[in-house]
Design a protein around this nucleic acid. Structure first.
Lengths: 192, 192
DNA sequence: CGAGTCGTTGAACGGAATCAATCGTCGTGG
DNA sequence: CCACGACGATTGATTCCGTTCAACGACTCG
């Protein structure tokens, strides 16, 4: 989400969920917006035929269901993908807070615009067919000073860029033998 | 963008560009935000090594560079991908207008939240490896009452979901013989 | 009229997914 | 405390299918 809400005196609840636990259900009335403090939460949309589609995975440090701030019902399920801790904020209170604090609104717009930028970039990176090129494009876009630190697992990273985990490991190994990258503990260093 | 700005009395300029023309340059000071009225605009990021990466393609009816509302410099090039018409709004005026109109700010937040929802969904759809499944997931997510109307070309659609155009044509043909869809002029009908 | 784009189909190749197996670690419960 | 399961990391072998190159007709636009 964004920092203003945390610094406000809005009531917030922290709750723990186990793998598979539902945080909210598709179709239910929107009460809260959420923030993942640890773990991983999947947003899953169920369509009429009963097929389900993962529409987003929120990791620690990310908010989810913010898009529901303006709708009455959740348009997807929120499911803990592993043991997770989640902070919830009351939707109405958040909206009221925003209306009374234009500066916070601007900050939120800024945050949302940033998210859109990131998502568009990720989306285009996913259009790169070659696994090696896709990985390099992702690393270059994420790296600061040629270093890419990741907090989640490489398996999560693989899913994030739309690759099978095996492919990611293989290509990372290839890239390392090619002296393009150096794998370290919890980070990847880009050469050149 | 969103409707409030058009209904406002903000000054706007309409300009035509030919294929390859630069609308703005990476690193230049942000003057305007834009809206595509016809054609197609690519946002291209150039990195240090001179590699370039398409970070977004904006089609008719879409805005672009809104993320630059809060930054001083464009972080990418804006290039017309074919003959295009573009409306521009002065960044400062837009910001001032927003600050003076909280309701419009809320509307903008709503619009941005919707974009985020759409982008996340598209991003997950792109993670589906099977071309047929990916196409069906996309059609089902976009269709209203089992009808999907498209204004852009199928070639553009192919790129949007990260497929080669040939693959899209082939799989659409397959899906039609399987009685899953019916191709019509400018629209695709989903069966069942 | 010619260039360019869209729509369409064919053939061949390469590479990503998939199935499978192993190893280490961590947490949990008996 | 140890056995067990779950999960992350890693490598091997195989299959399949999406990309790519190529070619062609239709159409628009300048």
């Amino acid at each position: 989400m964004f920092i203003d809400i945390f610094n406000s005196n809005l009531k917030s609840d922290s709750e723990k969920f186990g793998k598979g636990d539902k945080i909210f259900t598709q179709g239910a009335t929107v009460e809260n917006v959420y923030f993942v403090t640890s773990g991983r939460v999947k947003l899953i949309r169920e369509n009429l035929e009963g097929n389900s589609l993962v529409i987003h995975v929120a990791y620690a440090g990310e908010s989810f269901a913010e898009a529901s701030l303006f709708s009455n019902q959740y348009h997807c399920h929120g499911v803990a993908d592993c043991a997770s801790e989640v902070v919830s904020f009351n939707k109405k209170q958040v909206l009221t807070f925003l209306q009374e604090n234009p500066a916070s609104m601007m900050a939120l717009i800024n945050a949302l615009a940033g998210q859109i930028r990131d998502l568009r970039l990720l989306s285009e990176i996913k259009s790169i067919y070659s696994a090696k090129d896709r990985i390099m494009a992702f690393l270059q876009s994420e790296a600061k000073e040629n270093m890419f630190y990741y907090t989640y697992s490489l398996t999560d990273l693989a899913h994030k860029i739309g690759l099978a985990q095996e492919t990611l490991y293989r290509k990372l190994a290839t890239l390392e033998t090619e002296n393009k990258i150096i794998k370290q503990d919890g980070c990847i260093k880009l050469i050149n």
